[in-house]
């Protein structure tokens, strides 16, 4: 039969007797947390950059559509058409 130690006794021998080991476990957990947070920040920065690029593209698209609309409204056919249908708008009440 081997001399099985209780967890408390083991900790006393391995950890309590050597504070450095306890500190190393805490260090291990802290490093993991830092790496995890750094990875998360890097990913979020990447996502933000992509979102900004997408926003820029969409804003350019909206501007182009606005310009198209303005050009269309300035056209003769639009003005003639609008003049033709204006009396009908009175019917809508």
């Amino acid at each position: 039969m081997i001399d099985q130690q209780s967890p408390e006794a083991w900790r006393e021998r391995v950890f309590a007797a050597d504070e450095e080991l306890l500190a190393r476990h805490a260090e291990l957990v802290a490093i993991d947390n830092v790496i995890g947070l750094e990875a998360q920040v890097a990913r979020l920065q990447h996502d933000l950059k992509k979102a900004k690029e997408r926003t820029k593209d969409l804003q350019a698209l909206v501007r182009a559509r606005d310009e198209e609309l303005a050009a269309m409204r300035a056209s003769r056919s639009w003005r003639v058409g609008r003049a033709l249908v204006r009396p009908l708008s009175r019917l809508r009440g």
Binding site: R24, L28, V29, I31, D32, N33, V34, I35, G36
Partner: peptide, 10 residues
């Protein structure tokens, strides 16, 4: 192992 913070306990 120590450089990468071991296995995440989360």
């Amino acid at each position: 192992y120590f450089e990468v913070g071991g296995h995440t306990e989360q």
